[in-house]
Amino acid sequence: MGENRQIVINANENGCKLYHRELNRKIREAIQNGYKHIILKNIMGQRFIGAGIKDDVVIEIYGDAGLDLGVFFGGKQIIVHGCSEYLLGNTLNGGEIVVYGDSWDITGMGARDGKIFVMGNGGSRVGIHMKEYKDKKPVICYGGKVKQYCGEYMAGGIIVILGLDFREAIIDRKKPLDRDNIDPSKIKNYDDPIVQSDIGGGIHGGAIYVRGEVPKEYLGVYAVKEKATNADKRILKPIIKRFCELFNCPEDLIWQKEFTKIRPISSRPFGKHYSTVPI
């Protein structure tokens, strides 16, 4: 006992959807009772799951999580066997969030630390206002494609967009999506470009790594692109390794294509707009 104490919470008792306040109350109660592994079954879009939890726990979700999953989360891990809606990892403080599905707009808004791994596609404004401080560097890694304004106003951390198509690699759609349900030989590449316009609009820190080519007209205000160097690859390596572990993806497949790095044009791109001293 002790380490791996598990509890299963059913979020849909008697066909009645549990309200998010009630659900979060049950989760906190379980943590107080010493459970380290909390399994949530039949989740139907409940919001704010795992809000503000800082204890060393794993929350596993079966179903589609709602908005603001893992808001202010600083625990160990959240795993979603399904999709997550908007605002995944809003102001994330630490830990790891893994989504075996899609997660759309505003993922990792204002994240301060922690890691977000998503198997599928993203929406607009992924990683908006992400920041870093000393050793606290948030990471967002998307397996699929993302839409407009990726990394908008980004001030730190790393976003990785891989452009892998997992849709045909799922072995059994009826079963919950997890590592064993992915056939690595059937993972394909999406055609370039895997991002949309205004990537890194207003970026002033951190870096966005896009697997493949990024058209010049897609760059946002004060963002520049360059080929990823060996130093960049060293940064990417642990992230890719973890992604492949989670989603049963061969590492060689990912390194087949070159990465493009998107970074701010200078260390103070907006200095001249706000500073009275000419720079």
Binding site: M44, G45, G63, D64, G66, L67, C83, E85, D102, W104, N121, G123, K147, I170, R173
Partner: peptide
């Protein structure tokens, strides 16, 4: 608005934004 509204009545995997 949200995927869970669709999955409530039809557990389809053919969805997109």
């Amino acid at each position: 608005s949200e995927l869970n509204a669709i999955h409530e009545v039809d557990n389809t995997s053919n969805y997109w934004q």
